[in-house]
Design a binder for these strands. Structure first.
Length: 257
DNA sequence: TCCCATGTTGCTAA
DNA sequence: GTTAGCAACATGGG
């Protein structure tokens, strides 16, 4: 579930909550999540995001790297008690931070701090010219291209649909056929939507909650995602659902060409 | 009961 | 070598 804006939201909240603090204890509550190594007693230097990866940098050069996959999230609690589907726990004096994940796809590992995941970040390193160049040699549909994490790290299904709608581009178009003006429009749409979604703390369609258990607000701004059969507010046509690159894809046949 | 799901990986086949 | 398609992972909701 979490795409770039959701991961950025929890990244900022974690940074504000635990940066500079010493981990009192770390406990794996579900072995499937991975091995965190021995992190108790270490100080958290910073919390950072790259694409959908979240990295908690530790004193000593290593980092705990998380991927939330479909339903992972973090939850901070000041009182005692373990929430449902808790898979991992950091504890600090007076607060516990759980990784909660009903579907159990989330992962965690202890990595050397210098490592970087491949792929330009879809917000911080977004570059229309570089995208166009990369797309020249590819035959795939623009939407599948956008979802390639080596192309746009952090892009996900909801925001890809919304950015294509905002740009007026049909998700099935071959990516190498987009004009320079269209790449520019698409890049601007991605940036605009990501920034707005981050300011609204993400999209809570079903599972997503922030560090404090609150819903985001961007679900109220979605124009096509999940709205098959509804009226397009731009042209009045009907929003359609198709499958592109194996993923449910929402678009307006009237204004996306 | 069936279908769907905000993600990624790995296999198969063209 | 590429790439498209699909099952798998595991669980819950409509």
């Amino acid at each position: 579930m979490p795409e770039l804006p959701e991961v950025e939201t929890v990244c900022r909240q974690l940074r504000a909550a635990i940066k500079g603090k010493r981990i009192r204890a770390a406990r794996v509550l579900d072995e499937k999540i991975g091995k965190p190594g021995d992190t108790a007693g270490r100080i958290i230097l910073d919390v950072e995001r790259q694409g959908k990866w979240l990295r908690i940098r530790l004193e000593g050069g290593q980092a705990l790297e998380f991927h939330l996959r479909m339903t992972g999230r973090f939850l901070r609690l000041e009182e005692k008690g373990v929430p449902p589907h808790a898979r991992f726990l950091f504890s600090f004096p007076g607060e516990n931070i759980f990784l909660v994940d009903p579907r159990r796809f989330a992962t965690l590992s202890l990595v050397e701090g210098k490592n970087r995941r491949p792929g330009a970040d879809a917000l911080l390193e977004l570059d229309a010219g570089a995208l166009r160049k990369k797309a020249e040699s590819r035959k795939t549909a623009i939407k599948a291209f956008m979802l390639d994490q080596k192309v746009l790290a952090g892009m996900g299904n909801i925001y890809a649909c919304e950015a294509l709608y905002r740009s007026g581009i049909d998700p099935r178009r071959p990516c190498r056929g987009l004009s320079p003006a269209e790449w520019k429009r698409l890049s601007r749409s991605i940036r605009f939507i990501f920034k707005e979604a981050i300011s609204m703390r993400g999209t809570s369609i079903s599972d997503w909650r922030d560090l404090y258990g609150r819903k985001g607000d961007f679900q109220n701004r979605l124009r096509v995602y999940g709205s098959a059969g509804a009226k397009c507010r731009r042209c009045g046509g009907e929003i359609a659902r198709i499958v592109v690159g194996g993923r449910g894809t929402y678009y307006c046949p009237g204004c996306q060409a």
